[in-house]
């Protein structure tokens, strides 16, 4: 299986990270930082969601804004993703996020979800509902061991499940963050 995400031809990560894999990860992060690239509006819709235009109709404003802010935005986003990746690469079954890192982690999850949403072509609430229905159909077929052709794309279902899992993860992180703040107010 291969899933085209950001500049990754094959994102299927090995179960155990060896040194080669870590080097590869470093290359991916370096490519994401991509400061040597020209700072024009990205042609990839997923990159356009992560680094959007600052004006819908005024190209001059949008280009100038991109020139001034994109290097910093890329650094910020890459640093957050790298922190999350390093935390997830640690040994152990649990992932601990400190309260003061929770918003940065939620933002990193948002960027990943934006890329997935672009690849899944999720634009509206209806698109998201359709995806949920497709996943339910595929899950039901797996549970009942049905073999008939459902007309659903397995790669889409896989990415969709990842999208749902990250959504749940982000919501539960925000729940901790927001209820934690209420307790502090009391």
């Amino acid at each position: 299986m291969s899933a085209r995400l950001l500049g990754a031809d094959d994102f299927a990560a090995p179960a155990e990270l060896d040194r080669d894999a870590r080097d590869h990860v470093d290359d991916v992060f370096r490519a994401l930082a991509g400061l040597e690239e020209s700072l024009a509006e990205p042609s990839d819709p997923a990159v356009r969601r992560v680094l959007p235009s600052a004006s819908r109709d005024d190209h001059e404003i949008a280009d100038e804004f991109r020139r001034l802010t994109e290097p910093d935005l890329r650094s910020l986003k890459v640093a957050r993703l790298r922190t999350m990746w390093e935390q997830l690469s640690d040994e152990g079954a649990e992932w601990h996020v400190r309260l003061d890192e929770a918003l940065a982690t939620a933002s990193a999850l948002t960027d990943v979800r934006l890329v997935l949403a672009a690849r899944l072509r999720l634009e509206t609430d209806e698109d998201a509902e359709r995806l949920h229905a497709e996943i339910d159909l595929a899950s039901h077929a797996m549970d009942t061991d049905a073999h008939e052709d459902l007309g659903v794309d397995p790669e889409r279902v896989w990415l969709g499940m990842l999208y749902q899992a990250l959504t749940w993860l982000q919501e539960s992180l925000l729940h901790c963050l927001m209820t934690g703040e209420e307790e502090q107010d009391v």
């Binding site: 992560v50 680094l51 959007p52 600052a54 819908r56 804004f65 910093d72 935005l73 933002s107 960027d111």
Partner: peptide, 18 residues
């Protein structure tokens, strides 16, 4: 406004200048 828009883009939210 540019500072605010940049901050929103940092959070993955699409803001525009108008």
């Amino acid at each position: 406004m540019e500072v605010d828009v940049q901050a929103m883009h940092g959070y993955g939210l699409w803001a525009t200048l108008q």
